[in-house]
């Protein structure tokens, strides 16, 4: 097994990292005993920067993000350290974490249809986070919600704020999720496969939107995906996971042009390239344990 390389120092803006994950391990107690889903991973994210976490399904990438938010299901055991703005997140009380969630760390999930409550308007669901963290009246929150929707380029926001999730297309729903995440101007955005459930054409739009908003707000971003093409577009640094373990990590350019780890190389080789000869056998990946 190749040595794990820590990411080269991306251009530092102001000293301490926004998020510093050290030796994070997550395991579950199952019927058959203990099962480790994330095994001793470490990374850091700075403001204005995006870290792409790549891996197949089951590699532990989603679990990592849930661990940061403290949203792991019952029965999960976490060790290691997650420092956010210098403060330890692991082991904190629900009450403490609730103040951070939605306010300083926001999350965008994969499937916007099931991630939105079908019984309430999108306006309400966007307003909720704002009201919970910033207070103020419903009227004010409504304005905030409409502005947020405009920001993610939903046309006719004034009217659509009273619509229900099922009345939007997939791409628009994801925009709403993004709007929801941004209302409180978070310092860290965690995007868990935000474009996976979308059409390819819509994917590009959403990615562009996310990048633009990140640049505007100066937030750091943890971008989780299995899609290398996507990673190459958005991430400053890449962290490759397989079966919960770090295979390789480093700046995007370096990983893509000079991959060191065999797994990484296979991942890259699996992505079809337009300048390649056809009929070249693609690498096959074994199933996930």
């Amino acid at each position: 097994m190749t040595q794990v390389r820590h990411p080269d120092e991306p251009a530092q803006t102001d000293g301490a990292p926004l998020l510093e994950v050290s030796n994070l391990s997550i395991s579950f107690d199952t019927r058959e005993g203990s099962s480790t889903v994330v095994d001793d991973i470490s990374f850091r994210i700075d403001r204005h920067k995006t870290l792409g976490v790549v891996g197949e399904s089951g590699s532990g990438k989603s679990m990592t993000s849930l661990a940061i938010m403290g949203l792991l299901p019952k029965g999960a055991r976490t060790t290691g350290s997650v420092l956010f703005k210098g403060e330890e997140l692991l082991g904190r009380s629900e009450k403490w974490l609730r103040k951070i969630r939605g306010d300083q760390i926001a999350m965008i999930f994969q499937d916007p249809l099931s991630s939105l409550n079908p019984y309430y308007t999108v306006g309400l669901q966007i307003e909720e986070a704002y009201l919970a963290h910033r207070g103020g009246g419903r009227k004010n929150a409504r304005t905030v919600a409409i502005d947020a929707m405009r920001r993610v380029r939903i046309t006719d926001a004034e009217r659509r704020v009273d619509d229900y999730p099922h009345q939007f297309s997939g791409g628009m729903r994801q925009r709403i999720m993004i709007a929801m995440a941004l209302t409180c101007e978070p310092d860290l955005i965690i995007a868990d496969e935000p474009t996976t459930a979308l059409d390819v054409t819509v994917q590009a739009q959403i990615l562009e939107l996310i990048s633009m908003l990140q640049a505007e707000t100066g937030a750091g971003m943890l971008f989780i995906t299995h899609d290398l093409a996507v990673v190459s577009q958005v991430a400053d640094a890449v962290h490759v996971l397989q079966n919960g373990q770090t295979m390789e990590a480093g700046p995007t350019e370096q990983i893509f042009s000079r991959p060191q780890d065999p797994y990484t190389r296979r991942l890259l080789a699996a992505v079809p390239r337009i300048d390649e000869v056809v009929d070249v056998p693609r690498p096959v990946f074994g199933g996930v344990q």
Binding site: M69, L71, E94, L97, R98, K99, I100, R101, G102, D103, A106, M107, F109, D111, S114, S115, L116, N117, P118, Y119, Y120, Q125, E128, A129, A132, H133, M177, M180
Partner: peptide
């Protein structure tokens, strides 16, 4: 999944229950 979203927004527990869990 929408319960997970509600928790990720840092909403108070009672609100999550009353609003997001009860109606469905």
């Amino acid at each position: 999944n929408f319960m997970r979203t509600a928790r990720a927004k840092g909403l108070p527990g009672s609100l999550i229950l009353r609003r997001h869990a009860l109606r469905p």
